[in-house]
Amino acid sequence: MVFVKEEIEENSSEPEPWRIIKHEEQTELIERKEESEELSEVKEESEELSEVKEESEELREVKEESEELSEVKEESEELREVKEESEELREVEEESEELREVEEESEELREVEEESEELSEVKEKSEELREVKEESEELREVEEESEELREVKEESEELREVKEEHCVKPGEKPLSCSKTKNKFLKKRKEKPINL
Rank of each mutant, 00 (worst) to 15 (best):
E98L: 05
K123R: 15
E115F: 04
R90D: 02
E118W: 13
S156T: 10
E75A: 07
E77A: 07
E104Q: 08
S76G: 04
E101N: 06
E135F: 13
E141N: 06
E158K: 08
E137P: 07
S86G: 10
V82L: 13
L129C: 03
E138V: 15
R90L: 08
V142G: 04
V92A: 08
E98G: 00
V92Y: 04
E94Y: 00
K133T: 04
K125Q: 14
E131V: 15
L149R: 13
L79I: 11
S96F: 02
E145Y: 09
S70R: 13
K153D: 07
L69K: 05
E94W: 00
K133P: 00
E84F: 03
E75D: 12
E124Q: 12
E143P: 01
E135N: 14
R140M: 05
V112T: 02
R140A: 11
S116T: 15
E138R: 14
E71N: 05
E113V: 13
V112W: 01
E145V: 14
E74W: 05
E98Y: 00
E127F: 11
S116I: 15
E115Y: 05
K125E: 15
V82E: 14
E134H: 05
E134S: 11
S116G: 13
R150W: 09
E131I: 15
S70N: 09
E78W: 02
S70L: 11
S136M: 09
E107H: 04
S126M: 10
E143V: 12
E151K: 08
R110N: 06
E134G: 04
E77Q: 09
V82K: 08
L69D: 04
E127I: 14
R80D: 05
V142R: 11
R150A: 14
R140K: 11
V72Q: 06
S146I: 11
E75L: 10
K73N: 08
E134Q: 10
L149F: 15
E141I: 05
S86K: 11
K123Y: 12
E114P: 01
K125C: 03
V142D: 08
E88M: 05
L109D: 03
E145S: 11
V152Y: 06
E121W: 08
S96L: 12
E154A: 13
E91L: 12
R100S: 11
S120A: 15
S136V: 12
S96V: 08
S116V: 15
S146E: 11
R100M: 05
E105R: 14
E95H: 00
E155G: 03
E138C: 06
E141W: 01
E143K: 11
E135I: 15
E157M: 04
S126K: 12
E97W: 01
V102A: 09
E151P: 01
K73G: 03
E101F: 00
E108Q: 14
E95N: 00
E143W: 06
E148K: 06
